[in-house]
């Protein structure tokens, strides 16, 4: 079954998103592999469910965590998107939102939490510190980017990012989930050189 090229998100136009080429590449890969009509339809339903029900693990280490709390509070209210169910147990979470600097002492803990999560699991790296070490890049005790430890699906830059930026990042993650395949092969495990 032909997979649609465009993954739509309510109230935001396809062209307004960046990094569309990345998703198009994923779609192309899926279409090249091919899938049956029934399997494809079931996949679409599953992906719809998964993308609209992203329960995040509360994993705040510093400043960004406060903005995440603001995201959950009344003004920004992430419950509207169904993201509000934050699980504190990694077993029940769908994605880990890494909020704040990851230090050398924390890195094994983060890896362990990631390993404890149940598939499908996604990683969102929030803030400059998690992306590259941010202002603490030259420190002796800071990991320069969590992509060195765990695979990252979406980066949200900022120090800390505004709640609107969180939303944009979450929508990007939703779009990414919508072009996945659950039944018959998983396309998340890309080769290293493709995942830029």
């Amino acid at each position: 079954m032909e997979i649609k090229k465009r993954t739509d998100i309510r109230s935001m136009k396809y062209e307004e998103f960046r990094n569309n080429d990345y998703l198009e590449r994923m779609v192309k890969q899926l279409n090249d592999d091919g899938a049956g009509v029934i399997v494809g339809t079931a996949d679409e339903l599953i992906n719809w469910g998964r993308s609209n029900s992203l329960w995040s693990l509360t994993f705040g280490t510093s400043c960004c965590a406060i903005e995440f709390m603001a995201l959950g509070a009344a003004r920004y209210d992430m419950a509207r998107f169904g993201f509000e169910v934050t699980r504190n147990s990694p077993r029940q979470a769908d994605m880990i939102m890494v909020l704040g600097t990851i230090t050398h002492r924390m890195a094994p803990v983060l890896k362990r939490l990631y390993d404890q999560m149940a598939e499908p699991k996604y990683v969102v790296a929030v803030g400059g510190c998690t992306i590259s070490g941010g202002p603490f890049r030259n420190s002796y005790h800071v990991v320069n980017g969590i992509d060195k430890i765990i695979p990252v699906d979406v980066f949200i830059p900022g120090c800390p990012p505004r709640p609107e930026a969180f939303y944009y990042g979450m929508m990007q993650l939703q779009r990414k989930i919508k072009v996945e395949r659950f039944l018959g092969g998983v396309n998340r495990k890309e080769k290293k050189e493709d995942s830029k």
């Binding site: 280490t61 510093s62 400043c63 406060i66 704040g100 600097t101 230090t103 002492r105 924390m106 803990v109 202002p135 603490f136 030259n138 420190s139 002796y140 005790h141 800071v142």
Partner: peptide, 28 residues
């Protein structure tokens, strides 16, 4: 120490106006 970022060591190689940037991230 799970969020020990070594700010005091970093300060020693930053000029005075630069050190200011890190204080906000201490107790945000």
């Amino acid at each position: 120490g799970y969020i020990h970022r070594g700010i005091e060591k970093m300060n020693e190689s930053l000029t005075y106006p630069q050190t200011l940037a890190l204080t906000d991230r201490l107790d945000y």
